[in-house]
Amino acid sequence: MLSAVVDLLCCPVCRAPFECADRTLWCTGGHSFDISKQGYVSLLGGGGAVFVRTPPRCSVPEQDS
């Protein structure tokens, strides 16, 4: 079933086309995505959340020493 739509998919990292081989989708950019036992592929990145440091919402007054 996946082989019928693999030509419609592209790599979410580099936008290269996919090839299907041995339960894995490979792109020409070298990225790979495993095909599950159920036959689906998650194209979501597993990099985790990106945290950006933001300025504080309130400031603490400086104390004179």
Rank of each mutant, 00 (worst) to 15 (best):
S59H: 11
F18K: 03
P56Y: 05
Q38T: 12
G46D: 13
C11Q: 07
V6E: 03
F51I: 10
P55V: 06
E62L: 12
C10A: 15
C27W: 05
Q63R: 15
K37A: 12
S65G: 12
C14M: 04
L8P: 00
G45K: 08
D34A: 13
E19A: 13
C58A: 15
R15M: 11
G30T: 05
I35W: 01
C10P: 00
S59D: 10
V41I: 04
S42W: 05
G29L: 03
A49P: 00
Q38A: 13
D22C: 01
V5N: 09
A49D: 09
D7I: 10
P17H: 07
S36C: 05
G46Y: 03
V5G: 00
A4G: 02
L9F: 05
R23K: 12
S36V: 01
F51S: 11
G45C: 11
V5W: 11
G46R: 09
L25E: 05
V5T: 12
H31I: 04
F33W: 03
S59P: 06
R53A: 13
C10L: 09
V13G: 07
E62H: 04
F18P: 02
P56W: 02
R53M: 08
K37F: 00
D34I: 00
D7W: 09
D64C: 11
C20R: 11
V5R: 08
F18N: 04
Q38M: 08
G48A: 03
L43S: 04
F51N: 09
M1H: 10
M1A: 14
F18W: 01
D22G: 06
C58R: 15
V13I: 15
F18Q: 02
V41M: 05
G39Q: 02
V13Y: 07
H31V: 02
R57T: 12
C11K: 02
F18C: 05
S3H: 10
V13N: 09
V13C: 08
G45H: 07
G48M: 03
P56N: 07
R15F: 11
I35T: 07
M1P: 09
L8S: 13
A16H: 14
R15N: 14
V41P: 02
P17N: 07
C20Y: 13
C20D: 10
S65M: 11
L9K: 04
V41T: 01
V41E: 01
V6S: 04
T54Q: 15
V60E: 13
L2I: 07
C58Q: 15
P56M: 02
T24V: 14
G29K: 01
G47W: 06
C14G: 01
P12H: 01
D64A: 15
K37V: 09
S59K: 14
S3G: 10
S65Y: 13
D22F: 00
A4Y: 08
Q38K: 10
P12F: 05
L25G: 03
G45Y: 00
T24E: 06
P12C: 07
F51Q: 11
L44W: 02
G46I: 02
L44C: 08
A16D: 14
R15Y: 12
S59I: 11
P12Y: 06
G48P: 07
P17M: 07
G46S: 10
V5L: 12
L44V: 09
V41A: 03
C27V: 06
L44T: 09
L43D: 02
V5Q: 08
R53C: 09
D64T: 15
C10W: 07
H31N: 00
C27A: 03
G46P: 00
W26A: 12
V60Q: 13
G45E: 09
V41Q: 01
M1L: 09
T28Y: 00
G47F: 05
L2C: 01
